[in-house]
């Protein structure tokens, strides 16, 4: 039985991802709070229900507010929110997929299975990201 090799101290994938997990979590907090505040300023307080507001908070996609009573959607549909969406998607998906990677690798040694799983998880990340970008650009 060979236990998993621990990466050297310093600049390694594990260090970068450790830092990324913290920073992306804080960014997701910031993105959510920005979306929530902006929605309230743009009239969500009186023209929509809580469900729509929370959907908007998590992900600023126009399809999340279409069904509400907001008549003027100009503030909700523009490139600014698309950039916010791409940022949220990048941080969210990468955070989640890296979490999956670290859970899986906790149960892997240094065998070739680890590389297989890394490859599979990378393609999963790529696939979900591309589908999500497509949904944002098409909505």
């Amino acid at each position: 039985m060979i236990s998993r090799k621990v990466a050297k101290r310093g600049f390694s994938l594990d260090y970068i991802m450790w830092l990324f997990m913290r920073l992306s979590a804080l960014s997701l907090y910031a993105l959510g709070l920005t979306g929530l505040t902006a929605a309230l300023i743009m009239g969500a307080r009186t023209q929509t229900d809580l469900n729509t507001l929370i959907r908007w908070t998590f992900f600023q996609n126009p399809s999340h507010v279409f069904s509400s009573d907001i008549i003027n959607l100009d503030g909700f549909i523009n490139p600014y929110w698309q950039i916010m969406e791409f940022t949220a998607l990048f941080f969210g998906i990468t955070h989640g997929i890296n979490g999956l990677r670290s859970v899986v690798e906790d149960y892997m040694g240094s065998s070739w299975w680890r590389q297989v799983w890394r490859g599979f998880i990378f393609f999963l990340w790529l696939f979900i990201s591309l589908v999500a970008v497509y949904v944002v650009l098409a909505s």
Partner: peptide, 16 residues
């Protein structure tokens, strides 16, 4: 965390 990866992945796919 793992359940949320599943939910978000399925939600993105469902949206698509």
């Amino acid at each position: 965390g793992l359940t949320m990866v599943l939910f978000v992945g399925l939600h993105i796919s469902a949206g698509f």
